[in-house]
Amino acid sequence: MIIYTKDITQDFWTGTGGAKLGDFIADYVVKQQYGEYPLQISFLGIDNITPSFVNGAFLYLIDLFGQDFLRKYVKVIQANKEVAQTIRNSVQTYFEYQKNFFAQLKINHIYCAIDGSNEGKTFRFELYEMTKKQGFSFHFNPDDTTFSLVAKEKITKSDVFIGIITSNFFDGYILEQANYAIQECQKPCLLFCKHDVRLNIKKELRNKIHIIYYGQGNYLEKRQEINKIVQMNKQEYIANQKTTNTNQNVVAWTLLGLGAVALIGYLFQEETAEK
């Protein structure tokens, strides 16, 4: 399918103009569950674009879905030399930047709390292997049923918190740790919760905790959901200058996003395998 950029926007100069194209591509692929072939994005009739436009159109997609998404679903056609050069430069530079940035993040620690159900125990073992291979530094909660001092110490030393709740029997145990991570340690926090689990979250925590339900929806939708949460929190720090170390908080949220994306990839892989 060919998408003519001129039909989507007339503003080829700003990030906002680019984002109209980016949003269109994202919605088309995610909602229509677009198939195997890349969408062909035509720049016919467009004299020039700014790097800001490329940010909104393509780098935004990389942020939301990763580099593979762009490779799989997007192909640029009918561009003039300058437009093609601006796109190539921006995308290649950003790929390179992400590679270096992610490599630096591997020294940071992600605390992962998994409940003690059979499903949780399987996750724990397999996630440990997977994250080790991917080079992430995941620290898992101790294999016990009460929130111990050891767990508290691990959370304190980690940069971000991710919890996985597979069953209603164990939600209290994971939520207690999440509460500690948010209230006591001010860590970025995200919970993965199986779609049929009904959580009982304390009132004071409700606005502070982000929950992604897995086991329904599609992988790209969830990935988009995670990254929107990450972007929203990053922007909140930037706009309000909530603390004096904005950059570190932004980096921590980026780490949380990457860790969460790795986990959701695993959770969907498991689901597909079950089917």
């Binding site: 990030g15 790097p51 940010n55 780098l59 921006s90 990053k234 922007q235 930037i238 706009a239 932004v250």
Partner: peptide, 19 residues
């Protein structure tokens, strides 16, 4: 420098001044 950004909006990637 290239890719230095204070990320005021999600579309800011630090290319402007370097461009």
């Amino acid at each position: 420098q290239d890719l230095v950004s204070t990320q005021t909006t999600t579309h800011n990637k630090g290319r402007g001044l370097n461009t």
